[in-house]
Design a binder for these strands. Structure first.
Lengths: 215, 215
DNA sequence: GTCTATAGAGTGATAGAC
DNA sequence: GTCTATCACTCTATAGAC
């Protein structure tokens, strides 16, 4: 473990520096210096900066796709809660990616389409949960056409930006997965039926109890 | 109106270009070219790029502060709904600012403290509305300490990032103020008392009816 | 695979004439 | 107030030795 190959060292250092300084502000020399190699050597392993970013991007989407793939035949409330837990860790691992999204899209268009596709999948998966839970009688019928699309969109915004923005504001201390999940669940709450509220209170609410601070 | 002074022309062109390309990607020469002046002339009016950004920032905060200042002695539900309408226009006017937030903070620290202050004011004003409406019997008592701070925070994230992110995703067509406001109101909904729900349905819901698309 | 050294392409900012 | 010309600097990418 202590002796990773140079290629992997470069990727690890890049992610670390990107998270700290933002992608646009990290110089190739800085990455090289960070792991004690020369700029020339770095260029030997990655043709250019874009190649580094694409490699990171691939890793990142592999992880993201894995989270999405846990969507099951029976996507109940607990299932979604589990997914949220995983997303929380994921976003904490790559905050730069969500803060630099627009810059990435502008400078590396190849990455853009991949991302747009993933966002669509994510939102549509969230959207499908409404249909599923409507059939189970846990959420009400869509009040007007497009409402649940809107809610799914809001959930995506919160999942995607709540963590990085709190990091930027220096609130990492007061940020925990419980708060994150409760916030997301609040998006669904207005659309629960009585049965939905009952199931939520029984299955999910207990999971959102703050762990005692003495730990 | 057609003959603004050069200083104002520079600011207008800068905002336009920043919105299109992102602040970091707009060259001083590009701004100069946009309004048909030389780079030297631009430098005469603004010492450097930071001076341009600070001037825009000042305008921007003047507008933002004006919206916040409409918080009244009697901040009822309609009052908040009005504020949301104003915020929606404001954010549409300066989307670059919310997308480039992190870059601005990194490169122009003077701007950072102003922004942090404004965010705090905004969130704390949202937070105060919960106390006020608790006293009026429209929202329930805070279930646990910190919950309403969390909701106020989520509302801020949504107000701040929903519009710019939908612009980035190319969804400006399907984006309207009604959808925006309904999404924000959904944050409050889980905490309404029965009386709160009644007042919401009576006063706010009618405002959220989509205008007929034939217009 | 790794190094040193530097070419090449901008970009922000300035000098000085008009 | 406005212009042209250019300096000083930064950063990416490459050349070529080991």
């Amino acid at each position: 473990m202590a002796d990773l190959n140079t290629k992997q060292k470069i990727l690890n250092a890049s992610v670390r520096l990107f998270n700290e300084n933002g992608m646009a502000n990290v110089r190739l020399q800085q990455i090289a210096k960070e792991i004690g190699i020369s700029p020339g050597n770095l260029a030997y392993h990655f043709r250019n900066k874009e190649a580094i970013i694409e490699a990171i991007n691939d890793d990142l989407y592999r992880e993201a796709a894995e989270i999405l793939s846990t969507y099951r035949i029976f996507p109940n409330l607990i299932d979604f809660d589990n997914q949220l837990t995983k997303y929380f860790s994921f976003i904490q691992k790559y905050p730069f990616y969500f803060l630099d999204l627009l810059e990435i899209e502008r400078h590396y268009p190849a990455i853009r389409s991949k991302r747009q596709l993933h966002i669509s999948k994510m939102i549509s998966q969230i959207r499908k949960r409404f249909d599923f839970n409507y059939n189970r009688g846990l959420v009400i019928e869509e009040p007007r056409k497009g409402v649940y699309n809107g809610v799914a969109n809001a959930i995506w915004v919160l999942i995607t930006f709540w963590v990085p923005q709190n990091l930027v504001r220096g609130l990492e201390k007061s940020m925990d997965v419980t708060q994150f999940k409760e916030m997301v669940w609040n998006q669904v709450y207005p659309y629960f039926t009585d049965r939905g509220i009952a199931e939520y209170e029984q299955l999910i609410r207990p999971l959102l109890k703050k762990p005692s601070s003495e730990n």
